[in-house]
Simulated assay, not measured.
Amino acid sequence: MKKRKIMLLTIGILLMIVFIFFGTIHYKMTQYVDTEPSKNADYLIILGAKVNSETPSLALQYRIDAAAEYAKENENTILIASGGQGPGEDITEAEAMRRELVDKGIPESRIFLEDRSTSTYENIKFSKQFIPEDAKLGIIVTNDYHLYRSVQIAKDAGLTVEGLPAKTPQITLLKAYSREYLSVTKYYIEKYLLK
């Protein structure tokens, strides 16, 4: 009987720790949902997402829309479209973004293509080559649930950045947040435990 009580207590404590841990991650993620970035940033890095053949997924379209709106209001900001080509994609994510941005009136001369990356880490790593040497402030553009980790990765890479949240499609909300909890956990493990 005593062993059973100890076991139940241990399970209860572990569940409470897990609940607090994921609750903390959720809180940090939601802090970026309504964030308002500074005006006149030197550059935007728009993170890639799924392209269906040559058509941006809704998640990517929301990122493009947010970036285009900012770019129109801040005409000296350059845009780095970051994303390679994955399964089921006939063009790179960067190229899909470029096409949409041009359609929305953003001059091609302001758009740089980073078309090799396959992860958020690579988005940041490979985009750095397009950042002007005298740049002081950048902005990461991605769906709101993904913004916290993306900004942390960019800061880890030595960039001074803020976040510009794009909407997350309602249909993918549960799946997106669930996967991101695990991705943030992996990020913490790699950053703090495996160094």
Rank of each mutant, 00 (worst) to 15 (best):
Met1Lys: 12
Met1Gly: 14
Met1Val: 12
Lys5Glu: 11
Leu8Tyr: 13
Thr10Cys: 13
Ile11Val: 15
Leu14Met: 11
Phe19Arg: 00
Phe19Leu: 15
Phe19Ser: 13
Phe19Tyr: 07
Ile20Tyr: 11
Phe22Pro: 05
Gly23Pro: 03
His26Gln: 04
Tyr27Lys: 12
Tyr27Asp: 10
Lys28Cys: 07
Met29Leu: 03
Thr30Ser: 14
Gln31Thr: 10
Tyr32Gly: 01
Thr35Val: 14
Pro37His: 00
Lys39Val: 10
Ile45Glu: 02
Ile45Thr: 03
Ala49His: 06
Val51Pro: 02
Val51Phe: 03
Val51Asn: 04
Ser53Gly: 05
Ser53Tyr: 14
Ser53Ile: 10
Ser57Met: 01
Leu58Val: 14
Ala59Asn: 05
Leu60Asp: 08
Leu60Tyr: 08
Gln61Asp: 09
Tyr62Gly: 09
Ile64Ala: 04
Ile64Phe: 04
Asp65Trp: 00
Ala66Ser: 06
Ala66Tyr: 02
Ala67Leu: 09
Ala67Phe: 11
Ala68Pro: 14
Glu69Met: 12
Glu69Ile: 09
Tyr70Asn: 07
Lys72Gly: 08
Glu73Trp: 00
Glu75Asn: 15
Ile78Gly: 04
Ile78Cys: 11
Leu79Thr: 13
Ile80Lys: 05
Ala81Lys: 07
Ser82Tyr: 14
Pro87Tyr: 00
Pro87Thr: 02
Gly88Asp: 08
Glu89Tyr: 08
Ile91Glu: 02
Ile91Tyr: 01
Glu93Gly: 02
Ala94Leu: 04
Met97Phe: 08
Met97Asn: 12
Arg98Thr: 09
Val102Tyr: 00
Asp103Val: 02
Asp103Leu: 05
Lys104Val: 05
Ile106Met: 07
Glu108Lys: 12
Ser109His: 05
Ser109Ile: 06
Ile111Lys: 01
Asp115Tyr: 05
Arg116Asn: 10
Ser117Val: 11
Thr118Ser: 15
Ser119Asp: 07
Glu122Gln: 15
Glu122Thr: 15
Asn123Arg: 06
Lys125Ser: 10
Ser127Thr: 09
Lys128Arg: 13
Phe130Ser: 03
Asp134Glu: 14
Lys136Gly: 00
Leu137Asn: 15
Ile140Val: 15
Val141Met: 08
Val141Glu: 10
Val141Thr: 12
Asp144Phe: 09
Tyr145Ser: 12
Tyr145Val: 15
His146Ile: 11
Tyr148Ala: 03
Tyr148His: 12
Ser150Cys: 06
Val151Arg: 02
Val151Phe: 05
Val151Pro: 08
Asp156Gly: 01
Ala157Asp: 14
Gly158Gln: 06
Val161Met: 11
Leu164Val: 01
Leu164Lys: 02
Leu164Ala: 04
Pro165Leu: 03
Ala166Tyr: 10
Lys167Ser: 14
Thr168Leu: 08
Thr168Asn: 08
Pro169Ile: 03
Gln170Ser: 13
Ile171Met: 11
Thr172Lys: 03
Leu173Met: 13
Lys175Cys: 04
Ala176Phe: 14
Ala176Asn: 15
Ser178Pro: 02
Ser178Gln: 09
Arg179Met: 00
Arg179His: 10
Glu180Lys: 00
Leu182Pro: 02
Val184Ser: 00
Thr185Met: 09
Lys186Cys: 01
Lys186Ile: 12
Ile189Asn: 01
Lys191Asn: 00
Tyr192Arg: 05
Tyr192Trp: 13
Leu193Gln: 09
Leu194Ala: 11
Lys195Gly: 10
Lys195Glu: 11
Lys195Met: 03
Lys195Ala: 06
